[in-house]
Design a protein around this nucleic acid. Structure first.
Lengths: 200, 200, 200, 200
DNA sequence: TATGAATGAGTCTTCATTCAT
DNA sequence: AATGAATGAAGACTCATTCAT
């Protein structure tokens, strides 16, 4: 009888509360990491009481999982959020440069998140599943983009996958900017050239 | 308070004890992650008492740092431990294939470690320093290898850096083998081809 | 890390809990000393969980400081809690005798406290500040009492200070009653006579 | 058979070792307090190993007790170490001033000790016994001095006792010098005057 | 006698989670 | 639906004491 399970909010107010928690949780975890974020803080940032958190989420881990399901893509592959407009001129070099630019611009949320979440992929089945689902989808997205602009079909998904990693790497390199001895403009050019070569 | 500095072991027994703790700590952290490993467990696996840990290490974090300094390379860049023999035939394709093979063979330790440590790079200055030091060194190593086998000098360090990431990515892809829809043999071939192209 | 500041209780229940902890902490510290009292015990005596203690106090030391701020005067200068009634007859001898009597009657709390706290004055800046603030206030109080009953103003604060110590000493002497060879009635008389002489 | 008790050193080297521990322990405890001093530190300052400490002392507490027995007087009543020379001119005012001067000069060791030890008097029977034995002896000493310089015998021990406290108080006042609003020269003069009056 | 490495019980503190209101 | 006070298990770290050498 007693419905002590996690509540599935239907009322508008409920939905908003859950949303606030999810957002606060995601932001804090991204910023400081899962283990350095506590539920009291999440509640505080979400502007709700600590108790209410457990009416919408089974436990802390659940907040992580649900927030990843909701916002994960934005940290996993921010550079792949290419709009139709970006693809309009169908110039591969431009498209790739756009992706990199976009990533760098939006990297705020990803500061800590990307790597930390990746780490959890190895210890947490739920996180792993979300991540790989996201990865496949992104690969498919990119494959489709490539098809659209006339890249030959052969091994396309494998190529897309490598491309994603190449972009991801150069982006992180630039964003975190750790190597003073490295010329980033050269690296970006090299990366783009490499991808274009890979695709042809 | 107190003058209980961290002990610098000189006697043989001391050195062994510190070694045991370091090894146990590193293995557990790699396997389960830093936050999921507690000092009592490290002591237990090392077969020592909890107290002794703090005679050799300032705190738990210190175990992480020292173990990374000691064993870090093996998780950061296992594929770059190329021997002179590997370079003997001077065939780039073979060298790269060897690296990948070596990585895959030795990935045991890296299970959890690589990603988690990378995550900490963003929250932990000490870890960041060790990692980036390692990264630079690996880039230099690879640059030297490339020079040795006659790759032109231009932008060599940038190219080496991209190469490392390409190898790293494909290795993880294969080791964790997540994507049933992906043909790994093709990916390896593509990666090697891409690198060779990049270098010429 | 985290934003778990110390809570400032506003609700009635909160205030009571904090009060209970403060009281338990103070009593235990007085009875057994700061270092021989542990937080688990404080919580137990206060009839709360160990965790809640740290919602109201930053740490164990904070319990000491706050309890001193609240109850300190009662152990530092119990004899100076003279009421207006005590001063009514304006007889110095009677006033002093009253102080001593009052101290002896109320010495329960001070069993361990007075000396231990005094000891901490030398190692603990916070305790020192509270104590000296209390000391000054007591000196001022007594000066005022003296002025009220017509003692000449010259060097009055210095005289009050010496007076306080003389009373304090005789009180402790009597309360702890260590010296079988000493006649306490004589000592009290001598002390009072000495003070009266000092003031004129 | 096995003589596992605490060793009574007879050989010269043994005696010296024990001495070193005693001295180091006493100094550290005086300086930082009993609870803030650990045995490892005592051993280090004494320049011996941690293990050897337990061949000469039953436990940490034993170090405290024995060191108090040996050096206690110097912190309990440093001002009473009057030499025959000091008494030569038989001027009470001068004698008392000398005591105060001597105390202030030698207060180094007493920094922390006096109060802390006093605190322990209330929780530690052994310390209590030592302290009170010392107190009685000092009272007797001073009584004898007073007799020697012709102070009338009546209630002499009680007077000596009060005198000791008066000197003790003024000395601490001056040494720790906390009250900017207090004129210490005046206080010293008042104290001496008070004592002289008390004795006549 | 002496060393100093090792022990492990004890202490403070944190935090995910529950509960009374 | 919501609050926030309360819980208590768990973890990092300390230190008096013992033990192998």
């Amino acid at each position: 009888m007693g419905n002590t399970d996690v509540r599935k909010p239907v009322q508008k107010r409920s939905i908003e509360t859950k949303e606030k928690i999810l957002k606060a949780g995601f932001e804090l975890i991204c910023e400081k990491g899962y283990y350095n974020t506590n539920t009291a803080e999440i509640a505080k940032v979400a502007n709700v009481s600590t108790g209410i958190v457990y009416q919408y989420f089974k436990d802390k881990h659940d907040i992580l999982v649900e927030s990843l399901q909701k916002y994960g893509d934005s940290i996993f592959y921010p550079m792949l959020k290419v709009s139709a407009k970006d693809l309009y001129d169908a110039n591969l070099d431009k498209i790739l440069r756009n992706m990199i630019k976009k990533f760098i611009k939006n990297h705020k949320l990803s500061q800590y998140a990307h790597k930390e979440i990746m780490a959890m992929v190895h210890s947490d089945e739920d996180v792993a599943e979300i991540y790989h689902h996201s990865e496949i989808q992104m690969t498919d997205n990119l494959s489709k983009i490539f098809t659209d602009i006339g890249i030959p079909e052969q091994d396309l998904r494998e190529k897309a996958h490598i491309t994603i990693h190449l972009i991801d790497d150069i982006c992180h390199e630039v964003v975190y900017h750790r190597h003073s001895s490295m010329n980033y403009d050269v690296m970006i050019d090299l990366t783009i050239k490499t991808i274009i070569n890979l695709l042809n």
